[in-house]
């Protein structure tokens, strides 16, 4: 029963999301090639520009729908309230507005689901929510997810997408890097697989913690991945960065990631890796 209800809910969320996108117009402009394309075509083709192949950024629910078995997602920690450790002026207001605009409660969605019948914990970050920045709740949700996965002997898949630390939460945001990393260490010691998938953009404190800690690190084509952002580097070294610097392809060439995977093949690749870890034996 519960399963059915969840299935209905997730289907409905996705439908609403699509409706909302279409209500913004039947057409949209591709930010890469500037051509006008049918929104419906974009949605149907994994949010890839039908004209130039550019990858549009994807909302968490959409991402989950692309990789998980239909209706298998169970969300965890949906309603943790954002904290304001610096009493930063108007921060609560800003977060409330983000919640309203995105329909998300924070910059990451976590839970568990199945890929080809194999159960896995899964988290997806959202660039739409304060640039996917990591504050205390993002850190807490990811840590909870990893700890629960360790307990339930589940693998973890995390789609990273973040501008880095949540500045408004100051030092407490920095501490999330240690908190999430140490949870992954315990998960590792339990012999479980962690796959991180780097999507555009993955930078700053997220790169310097869980993004780069996967047993296997995958990335989407052309995703920007780095520690310091390109603008910061340019300002520091007073020169322009070469084309493609800090792209997924650049990282692959420098030995920093395992594989670049297209959106269409992502589900298959994840399934293969999960099977290779022996993940389905426990269930």
């Amino acid at each position: 029963m519960l399963f059915r209800k969840q299935e209905r809910q997730s289907k409905k969320m996705l439908e609403n999301y699509h409706k909302e996108q279409l209500s913004e117009g039947l057409f949209q402009k591709c930010e890469a090639c500037n051509r006008i394309v049918y929104t419906e075509d974009v949605i149907e083709d994994y949010h890839i520009c039908p004209s130039c192949g550019h990858y549009f950024r994807v909302a968490p629910m959409e991402r989950l729908a692309m990789v998980l078995d239909q209706g298998s997602f169970e969300e965890w920690d949906k309603d943790l309230e954002t904290k304001n450790p610096l009493d930063f002026p108007d921060y609560e207001k800003k977060v409330a507005k983000m919640k309203q605009n995105t329909g998300l409660s924070e910059a990451v969605v976590t839970g568990k689901g199945k890929i080809g019948g194999v159960e896995t914990a899964i988290g997806v970050m959202s660039s739409k929510f304060l640039m996917g920045s990591m504050g205390m709740i993002v850190g807490e949700k990811i840590t909870n997810m990893v700890e629960r996965a360790t307990k339930e002997k589940l693998p973890v898949i995390l789609f990273c997408c973040s501008g880095g630390a949540r500045m408004q939460e100051g030092i407490m945001s920095l501490m999330q890097m240690a908190k999430t990393s140490q949870a992954l260490k315990k998960h590792d010691q339990a012999g479980l697989m962690y796959i991180s998938v780097l999507t555009d953009p993955t930078t700053g404190g997220v790169t310097a913690s869980f993004a780069m800690l996967g047993d296997v690190i995958l990335a989407e084509p052309k995703a920007l991945i780095g520690f310091a952002g390109p603008r910061v580097i340019e300002q520091t070294i007073h020169q322009k960065l070469p084309e493609g610097f800090q792209s997924a392809e650049f990282l692959l060439e420098h030995g920093m990631i395992d594989k670049i995977v297209s959106r269409k093949k992502m589900r298959k690749v994840l399934h293969y890796l999960l099977l290779s870890s022996g993940a389905n034996k426990a269930h």
Binding site: M177, A178, S181, Q182, L184, K185, D188, T207, A208, S209, F210, A211, M212, L213, G226, F227, A228, M256
Partner: peptide
Amino acid sequence: QGEAIARNLY
């Protein structure tokens, strides 16, 4: 750089 820092935390 990101990997090196992450690895230390871990």
